[in-house]
Write a protein that binds this DNA or RNA. Sequence first.
DNA 1: TACACATTTCTGGTATACAAAAAGACGTAG
DNA 2: CTACGTCTTTTTGTATACCAGAAATGTGTA
Lengths: 225, 225
Amino acid sequence: MSRNGKLATDLVQKLERDIVTGVLKPGDKLDERSLSERFGVSRTPVREALQTLAGSGLVATMPRRGTIVASITVADLIEMFEVMAELEAMCARLAARRMPRADIEKLIALGNECSELQEHADADAYYEANVNFHEVIYSGCRNSFLERQTKNVRNRLAPYRRLQLHRPGRVKKSNAEHSEILEAISTGDAERAGKLMHQHVAVQGEALNDLLAIVPRGYLEPLAS
Amino acid sequence: MSRNGKLATDLVQKLERDIVTGVLKPGDKLDERSLSERFGVSRTPVREALQTLAGSGLVATMPRRGTIVASITVADLIEMFEVMAELEAMCARLAARRMPRADIEKLIALGNECSELQEHADADAYYEANVNFHEVIYSGCRNSFLERQTKNVRNRLAPYRRLQLHRPGRVKKSNAEHSEILEAISTGDAERAGKLMHQHVAVQGEALNDLLAIVPRGYLEPLAS
DNA sequence: TACACATTTCTGGTATACAAAAAGACGTAG
DNA sequence: CTACGTCTTTTTGTATACCAGAAATGTGTA
């Protein structure tokens, strides 16, 4: 059975996908034995995978008490969105200065795809296209370290961010903002691109209250880190 | 023998300290068996510690080829400093808006300490005080997530950043910049604080060439990630 | 002398076994 | 009937044994 070659890495990717896509929800227990027999490997690579995921913040490990999919406090959520807005704004600023023409074309295409999907009110499909749109901008900043850093924070926020789109009217507004950002980038207006992206990503004021109101029980910790 | 309670965590902290303080240098091999007998534990916690450090980017693990203290490419170095400047700038902006009066007093004290140490040309002591100065600003941003994120990147850059201070005249200039930043923060001028901090941290133009010129052989990878 | 191939050795990856601590179940006492 | 304490069970943390793959070395041939 046991195929060679870095089983732990595979597990990390599979678990990461399950967490980011919402198959596994914040607070879910990740039992080592269950996982090991589910994936047909021993506990060792499972433990390594969990260790890695803990390092990137996607899961939380409490000594002697097991590991769960990371659930964060309201304070953490606010802080992380604050940082996320800044990171994405930086990506947008740099992208406006550095993104090659070919990628701008790609961005335009994805913008159009978002617009089309918006009509059909398919939240999941739109979410996918939306992710692609943002990723092209990450890539366009031509700073692979910033790109990795940004994706990491995004992944950690994914379970909560996904909820946003279910707010009525959010998809339409989001799409309009995409158009503005796209225009700023393609004209090379770095400052404007950054500012627009910051507003696009930041969750503040009433929008924050709305988000908090629809976060399911268990997604948030009562208190403590 | 084996004392209970999360040996791996201790190892992470010890190795992290050794890397950040320069006892272990980029490119140094981290042999699992040597480490395990040096610390008197089995390979299992050693592997977990290395896994964790790999997650935070301080060491690099090549499949079947062992792990070394992370050595990065010139391109990586430039990218990371670009992000670092932005993160510290964000800390400074937020600190200017949020830092409580008591912390500002602390910052003034540390600024003075830096000034005094500058006279004596003790690079290591100055480096220490300099770290403290910056950490008070991280803390002052009142965003613990941003604080952790910033410290993480700083740790990864530590082996290279330490080299900067050995450039003649750098300490004096750095200290002058601290004064300006301090003034901007204490007067609540967020934009100015951010801009000054960005310039303070960013390594660009001739300064970059100087830095690259004194990076020891082995600190940088020839190519590839 | 230089290069190619085989063998050996060393090191990392995986599995399993054991120990310790926490959670849960059960019984008894109040 | 409830509450507390003890025992069992479950699950994590650590150690050890085994396996596989890559680097190093040695040998033979061109």
